[in-house]
């Protein structure tokens, strides 16, 4: 199987999607409201647009088209028109990008009925999920944490990054395959506690588990909406402890949804409060990004707190 970076895996998925289906169109030219509005129109015609926003931080001019139009078109026309489009955007910080090249706005999309939201953490998933997103009949927000484009970044920014070619999830099959939307992946099995996370923080959580010696079960959610509740609940019922980790700001972040879901469905199995480790509730600071980013030390500390609660 060829080893691919996440960038190569995504390019490959585009090529395959366009080859298999000539209604797939790929574009993106940094004019966000225009890009998404045009994509909705193309989708209404019957194409399957897959468009790119240069950075998730620049999606806001297109937000009206996403929220009021793409997300609700099927519902308001009772299925007469639909918007089967995919909107890709790089997310996350750690590249000294300051407040306009670092954001993780997934919660702004998961809060909107009618949208599906995917966050990828590795090349294998990126290809399979992107093909599934393009083939899906609903609008899909496809988020790509830029820190994992070239390797499984684990938050140790002072160490060289391991390339995907040296990681099993960098092995990407040639040809077409999909990963169904709505299926989480157990990234690391363990008995002590369950970590619910996605994107870059999957690898950070793994480093935290390895370094703290805590036998964490790390679940890479992959799709936030629809959410794989069964995998989450089965794991928490077994471990009895749950830590939620994401890079986005804490307040009203997707972690709040996860935390609520766990207490609704596994309350009697919990031995400790569900705890969140997230970005602080501030804009992403340029010079202080490593104080902002929830790195392995912060995650390990939270793991110990959950274990001793």
């Amino acid at each position: 199987m060829p080893a691919m970076t996440m960038i190569e895996a995504i390019r490959d998925a585009h090529a395959i999607a366009m080859e298999r289906d000539d209604t797939v169109v790929v574009f993106g030219e940094d004019v966000e409201a225009g890009i998404v509005g045009v994509a909705v129109g193309m989708a209404a015609y019957g194409l399957r647009p897959c468009v790119e926003i240069q950075f998730a931080d620049y999606v806001y001019p297109a937000y009206d088209q996403i929220v009021s139009e793409a997300a609700r078109l099927r519902h308001r026309s009772a299925g007469d028109f639909t918007a089967p489009l995919t909107i890709r955007m790089p997310t996350g910080g750690g590249i000294f990008g300051g407040q306009t090249h670092s954001q993780s706005p997934e919660a702004l999309f998961t809060h909107v009925a009618g949208l599906k939201t995917v966050v990828v953490s590795n090349p294998y998933d990126a290809k399979g999920l992107l093909l599934a997103a393009i083939e899906d009949d609903d609008p899909v927000i496809f988020l790509e944490p830029k820190r994992v484009y070239n390797g499984p970044f684990d938050g140790h920014h002072d160490r060289p990054i391991v390339p995907w070619s040296q990681h099993p999830l960098g092995e990407v099959p040639a040809g077409h395959y999909t990963i169904p939307l709505g299926q989480a992946r157990v990234h690391r099995s363990g008995d002590d506690l369950t970590v619910l996370t996605y994107g870059t923080l999957v690898h950070v959580a793994q480093a935290a588990a390895d370094e703290s010696g805590i036998d964490a079960e790390i679940i890479d959610l992959r799709t936030l909406v629809p959410l794989d509740v069964d995998t989450i609940v089965a794991s928490v019922r077994r471990t009895g402890r749950c830590l939620v980790v994401h890079e986005a700001t804490l307040t009203s972040g997707f972690g709040a949804e996860l935390s609520a879901t766990v207490q609704e469905r596994a309350f009697h199995h919990l031995e400790a409060p569900v705890t969140r480790v997230c970005g602080w509730d501030t804009p992403y600071p340029h010079a202080h990004e490593w104080s902002y980013f929830p790195g392995p030390d912060r995650v390990a500390r939270a793991m110990r707190e959950v274990m001793s609660a």
């Binding site: 000294f96 300051g98 407040q99 306009t100 090249h101 804009p283 600071p285 340029h286 010079a287 202080h288």
Partner: peptide
């Protein structure tokens, strides 16, 4: 830095 490191250079 009057902007306290919050913004990218030149902003």
């Amino acid at each position: 830095d009057p902007l306290k490191g919050r913004q990218l250079p030149v902003m």
